[in-house]
Design a protein around this nucleic acid. Structure first.
Length: 592
RNA sequence: UGGGGAAUCGUCUAACGGCAGGACAACGGAUUCUGAUUCCGUUUAUCUAGGUUCGAAUCCUAGUUCCCCAACCA
């Protein structure tokens, strides 16, 4: 997929630059080992895709490897359901951890022994302050913390108590093991952080083997070191945790030979990049979970959700997501990516991938008066104009057909070149038709348009060389199949949901519209998981969950770009502002 | 009145003392049996103020703005 003929678009991202410098200096023996460390407490979303693509991409690019490690140190929120879903999503995205599947819980025994060693070194102590007291003693940003009264417990007592913690001799929350660092540090993370808490909860892997569990800051760096991770890449909010990450490993490296547990071999370094922020959506797992549990969406796999599962079901391809992840770049800038970039990525992919079909979303009946009654024929239509090798298909045509309601205007606006009284358009792959008259109901609404056709234009070209401006998609009424369609819009109606109020208030009430359309017969037999471009309307995907054999349900992945619609909107705006406009504007011509 | 980060077209991102480049968006045009795609073109940026230098987005000084940190969450 690389194109060396392109002029250097280069510029490594800053992590690649670090890695290349490290390889240059033979740091880590030139190895590159990264890891993707999800906590199994929710489904993966588009933001994770950026991290996955980064970590696995680096492993691939530099001939190293990437581990999948579940960061499962909090049994209260973690479940196997998530472990499975996460693996599923990563594989679907196209990445492979090979045999390198790990769990932080695999290291619980070692982590515990490291705790004992830290106690023996005088670097950790059992603290018996309550949660409230701990935060009180911690101070705040401007006020240094105070030492815990338990800070100077003897090594023997600490060791005994830590063992008793493990043995289940204390109530939940009665004690913690804390690292002895510096209660006056300007960085709150370094104010004697707890590294073990007592918590009787069944763990999804270790069951009830443990009643104490390590905390993130302690567990993560140790896991990285045990796996010989070289570049431990995380998001910006962990930046202030890096001194602690380094501190723990530094202590552990001093474990003497012959101790019950050997010092970890790896010397990983943590690097931080900015997480993906996309407008018109929310990314936090807490909010996504809330959308699911409060049933604002149908589940983690709702096609409007920007979870990987939701996007997959919506019809996004793994390729498009990987391309998107690459296109947003990797920096430490706090930035917002426009949803349009994601939509562009899937359009670009599907434009090449998806065969074309015709489907009329909001039908308007056309009767071709000079077409023989009772007669029917088939016309050949290209399956993919960009790929002639995909051939053509037979599409039935007849006297009565449907076109899109918006493709006819009795009183057309300026620039409209679709069907209108007295004018001729092309029905794709079929004939030129001309609007002769309009049939209205009692209220004056157009219910049917009467046309004539030119039999000599069969196939869509006129022998006399006359041109038409418009080409419409259509479906023959007699053979049309009813098609279930779901049109999705952005889940939220504002760029940054929840900025100054509850994010749920920013939900877009029109994010889902279902309708029954008229499609060409082929669409009834399409199998789930298939993509089409419905010509002139958008890219659609047969929903893998809701489709039944012979009755696919079509998700609109994304609409086609529509510069006509955009122009119309611009005209509306222009008219709106012109009314209030001031004539003085004429005078600006004198400038310069 | 702490600690840690970040500031480049509208957006995202390059440039590492030597012509501020690319992508997306926008706008204009060409082609088109999809008002799609494709192609061509145009507009738009170095947070501010000083300094060093032949030369500063880049180095120095001072300032401004924004983000993160006060779970026994990750």
């Amino acid at each position: 997929m690389t194109d060396d003929s392109k002029p250097a678009a280069q510029g490594l991202n800053f992590i690649e630059a670090i890695i290349e410098a490290d390889r240059e200096s033979a740091k880590h023996g030139g190895d590159v080992v990264t890891r993707f460390p999800p906590e199994p407490n929710g489904w993966l979303h588009i933001g994770h895709a950026k991290s996955i693509a980064l970590n696995f991409g680096l492993g691939l690019k530099y001939g190293g490897r990437t581990h999948l490690r579940f960061d499962d140190t909090n049994p209260l929120t973690e479940e196997v359901e998530y472990v499975e879903a996460i693996q599923n999503d990563i594989k679907w995205l196209g990445f492979d951890w090979g045999k390198h599947l790990y769990f932080a819980s695999d290291y619980f025994e070692k982590m515990y022994l490291y705790g004992e060693e830290l106690i023996k070194m005088g670097k950790a102590y059992v603290c018996s302050l309550s949660g409230d007291e701990v935060s009180e003693y911690r101070g705040d940003f401007f006020k240094p913390g105070k030492d815990s009264p338990y800070r100077e417990r003897s090594i023997d007592e600490n060791l005994q108590m830590f063992r008793d913690m493990r043995a289940g001799k204390f109530k939940d929350g009665a004690h913690t093991l804390r690292l002895k660092i510096d209660m006056a540090s300007g960085n709150p993370t370094m104010r004697d952080p707890p590294c073990y808490r007592i918590r009787r909860a069944t763990h999804h892997r270790t069951s009830d083997a443990w009643c104490i569990y390590p905390l993130y800051d302690y567990a993560h760096c140790i896991s990285d070191a045990l796996e010989n991770i070289t570049h431990s890449i995380c998001t910006l909010e962990f930046e202030s945790h890096r001194p602690l990450y380094d501190w723990v490993l530094e202590q552990l490296r001093t474990i003497p030979p012959g101790a019950p547990v050997a010092a970890p071999t790896g010397q990983p370094h943590q690097y931080e990049f900015s997480r993906l922020k996309l407008n018109y959506t929310v990314m936090s797992k807490r909010k996504l979970l809330q959308l699911v549990t409060e049933k604002h969406v149908s589940g983690w796999e709702d096609p409007r959700m920007l979870t990987l599962a939701g996007l997959r079901r919506r019809g996004y391809t793994a390729e498009s997501l990987r391309a998107f992840a690459t296109s947003v770049g990797v920096t430490k800038n706090d930035s917002w990516t426009d949803m349009g970039v994601l939509e562009g990525a899937i359009r670009e992919d599907l434009n090449l991938r998806a065969p074309r079909a015709m489907c009329v979303l909001r039908p308007l009946k056309i009767v071709i008066e000079n077409y023989p009654e009772g007669e029917q024929e088939t016309v050949d239509v290209q399956n993919h104009p960009l790929k002639p090798e995909l051939g053509t298909r037979k599409v039935p045509f007849g006297r009565e057909i449907y076109i899109e309601q918006e493709d006819f205007q009795e009183v057309p606006p300026k620039g409209f070149f679709r069907l209108q009284p007295g004018k001729e358009v092309r029905l794709r792959g079929a004939y030129f038709v001309k609007c002769e008259r309009v049939v209205k109901d009692a209220d004056g609404a157009v219910v049917e348009v009467r046309c004539s056709y030119d039999p000599s234009t069969r196939g869509g070209d006129s022998p006399d060389g006359r041109k038409v401006k418009g080409t419409l998609h259509w479906v023959a009424a007699a053979t049309a199949v009813d098609v279930d369609i779901r049109l999705f819009d952005r889940l939220f109606s504002v760029e940054q949901p929840g900025t100054d109020r509850d994010f749920l208030l920013d939900l877009n009430p029109h994010s889902l519209e279902t309708l029954q359309a008229k499609g060409e017969p082929m669409l009834a037999s399409s199998s789930s998981g298939q993509h089409f471009q419905f010509e002139r309307t958008g890219y659609f995907f047969a929903d893998p969950k809701d489709s039944k054999p012979g009755a696919p349900v079509w998700n609109r992945v994304v609409g086609l770009k529509d510069s006509w619609a955009k122009e119309q909107r611009a005209d509306v705006r222009a008219v709106g502002t012109a009314q209030g406009a001031d004539v003085r504007a004429v005078g600006t011509a004198q400038k310069r």
